[in-house]
Design a protein around this nucleic acid. Sequence first.
DNA 1: ATATCTGCAAACCGTTTGCGGTGTA
DNA 2: TACACCGCAAACGGTTTGCAGATAT
Lengths: 146, 146
Amino acid sequence: MAENSATGARPDDFESRLRAAGIRITRPRKIILEILGDKADHPGAAEIYRRAQRIDPSISLATVYRTMKLLEDFGAVHRHAFDGGPSRFEVVDGDHHDHLIDLDTGKVIEFHSETIERLQEQIADELGYDIEHHRLELYGRKRRER
Amino acid sequence: MAENSATGARPDDFESRLRAAGIRITRPRKIILEILGDKADHPGAAEIYRRAQRIDPSISLATVYRTMKLLEDFGAVHRHAFDGGPSRFEVVDGDHHDHLIDLDTGKVIEFHSETIERLQEQIADELGYDIEHHRLELYGRKRRER
DNA sequence: ATATCTGCAAACCGTTTGCGGTGTA
DNA sequence: TACACCGCAAACGGTTTGCAGATAT
C-alpha cells in the first residue's frame, strides 16, 4: 500500500498517539478506529455500532459512545449535530472545512471558503468577540438540470 | 402604547393569522404568544414553561412543546439547537440573520452579512446544489481589552 | 354541538453511567 | 498484578404521545 502520511491521521497514527498518552488500545477501540479510518462518510453512533458489530458482535453501544467521547476529548474526532439530529462523527485531519448536507440522502459534502472564514472573523471582531469555534452548514438538494 | 407595526409580527398579529388559519386561540397559547412577543432573547422550552407558569401555573410543559411545534410548522418561530443543546426558539419577523452565541452567558447576538450569504449561494451552486436553508453560528467570548 | 385542545403520565430516543467482571500493560 | 476498560442494564434529559376530560368556536 502506498504511504499517505501527508493526509495526516490514519487509524494507526491514532493508535500510536493514544498509546503515547497512556490510553490502552483494546480490541473494541482498534475496531472503532479502523472504521473511522475509512473517512468516507460521517457516521453516527448507531452506524458505527452496526459496522463494529459486523467485525465483533460482542461490542456494545456504550463502548462506542465512550470511545467517541474519548476520541473527541483527545481532539481526534469532531461531533456534529446536523439539524438537531443525533451526533455524527468525523475524523479530524488538520484541514478545517464546513459542510453541505444533502437533505435527500444525508450525505455530507465538505467545502472551505477562506473568504467566508475571514468575514466571520471580522464580524465577530466588530461585535467585540473572539471566536472559539463556528459552524456553517448548508442544507440543500441536488440541482436537477434537465 | 405606541404602535409598532413596522417591526412586523407582534403577538396579536399571530393571533389573527392563526385564527384565520382555523387555529383556536386558547388561554395557554395566548400566554405563550405573549411571552414570545418579548423577543428579547432565545428561550428554550423549559424557560418558556417557567415564564408561562408565572402567569398561569396550570400550564403544562407538554402544551409548551405542542405550541412551539405548531408555531414552527406555521412558520412563526424558528427552532435552534446551538452546539447540540436543547432547542431554543426565536420569533420569525422576516429579516434573516445568523447568530453569535456568547459561550459564557448563552446570550445570542444576531448579525447578517449579505456577502457571506452570496458566497454560500455560490459555493452550493458550484457543488451542484440548491440551498434549502443554512445555519451559521459563531461561538465566542467577549474580547477582553485592557 | 363538536372538534380541537388541554393536563397528566407514560413512552420515547439518543446518550450517559454504576456495576461487577475482564483484559491490557 | 493492578488499574483501565468492558458489557450489561438501568438512569438520564429533552421531547413526544395516548388518553380522558375541558373548552373555544
